[in-house]
Design a protein around this nucleic acid. Sequence first.
RNA 1: CGGGGAGUGGCGCAGCCCGGUUAGCGCGCCGCGUUCGGGACGCGGAGGUCGGAGGUUCAAAUCCUCUCUCCCCGACCA
Length: 494
Amino acid sequence: MTGFLEVGGKSMSDERKYVEELGDVEDDFDRWYVEVVRRAELADESPVRGTRVIRPYGFALWENMQGELDRRIKATGVQNAYFPLFIPKSMLEREAEHVEGFAPEVAWVTRGGNKDLDEPWAVRPTSEAIICPTYARWVQSYRDLPILINQWCSVVRWEERPRAFLRSLEFLWQEGHTAHATLEEAEERARLMLEVYRDFVERELAIPLIPGQKTESEKFAGALRTYTIEAMMGGKKWALQSGTSHNLGDHFGRVFGIEFLDRDGERRYAFNTSWGLSFRTIGAVIMVHGDERGLKLPPRVAPIQVVIVPIWRKDEEREAVEAAVQRVRDVLQPVARVFVDRRDDKTPGWKFNEWELKGVPVRLEIGPRDVAQDQVTLVRRDTHEKRPVSVTELAGVVPAILDEIQANLFAAAKQMLDENTVEIDSYAQLKERVEANAGFSRAYWCGSETCETQVKAETKATIRCIPFEQPGTPGRCIVCGREAEQQVIWARAY
RNA sequence: CGGGGAGUGGCGCAGCCCGGUUAGCGCGCCGCGUUCGGGACGCGGAGGUCGGAGGUUCAAAUCCUCUCUCCCCGACCA
């Protein structure tokens, strides 16, 4: 997020010119976020508190993300299906930890038409409680396993403090649910799907991650183990859990009766996994890559990768420019998502600013000067670099530049993550860093919930994860000083 | 749910304290014309009954009561 603090380079007023009502990214990141979401036309407010209208531009972004993730999920042998929105109260309550964890966030249907329901229905906050009983009906033999199913849907959680994309009453996601004959296989699947998420988020969204395991207190309600990918947001350098994968053990198999006769003739309960990634990752894209001019979308998922802005003065020019634009569009259409901004009520300058706000990676300006030399003026959103490219080279140059931008965004985000992740060896340092919004702190932790709770109460920072990558040597817990086997990542989180 | 702030054309605000003509301003919007290489300009025009309900008064955006919503902070948050 170097862009945020880099304003010093140019004069403040120069930069402000682009910002206008965007809000100051330096000292009011939250407001900046709200404004970007609104002005880039990703989402609009809705009449229902905590919910948003996802506008076409925002939804197109989500669709591109869906496409890429869906492809990866299916490549691991998973099929898509759909389960009902409503879950009978008694079913949701079968797994004790599960219901306890979700109870405060569940929305209930108590009335249908003009009759009160005998049994209230939960609007799914997640679907384990309806999918597992279904699996129980489908499984008799080890030959029926594994079951590998994913669904794209929305779920409802009654959040107290909603934030567009990051935490809303209703949100879009995919949730995968699998059932296996052995714990080992479930574990393998849980880790595999986390890896799918990591690959997707890092390669498509250009967001570097710290993959790891959640602590007991932070894990999914009812899970044996929860794995997570944690990303660092710009601005306040807080963490955002960007995807999660659970090994549910046989807890759900037992309570929902997913029983099968194994190869050796023994009756066994199935082992489950579940894993989800939601459109909160859109929030991550905004906060990780955005700058004082607005969004900066990773080319691989950007709804519009190349925007063409025609420029002319006189009618004669208009004709020539229009012809060139047509030609350029035809050349690029097969290799990129192209949009031609033909609006004639907006000046080129206005359009430049708007498309930058909307994060389009590449802009092509085509005016009389370009037409005369059979070229276009190409401008990168990430570096603001402006250069002429001859029309004949476009089809080769544009894809290459899109790849470069993708790599560049990842590199910049990686640098932010690395520069703001520091290994510390004292609680005092942690307090200081949390106070200063200094980013992630990596430190030894003894594993006790007491230390974890104390830090959370005193600093608001939580253990984001126990990273898979460990030094391999023991150290001392920064809270209690006892011997500790592993390091954890401490940070404040959205 | 606790603390703070705010609701006035689509957006941002002024007016309110010290009630009183047709509720202003900027942006945006519509029409016409000139413009167009980093948020153009002129002329003409449309649009609000002041979050909602009740009350005080000859008279309420303005005072009083209740209520709803949004924002920020806190508590909560797979």
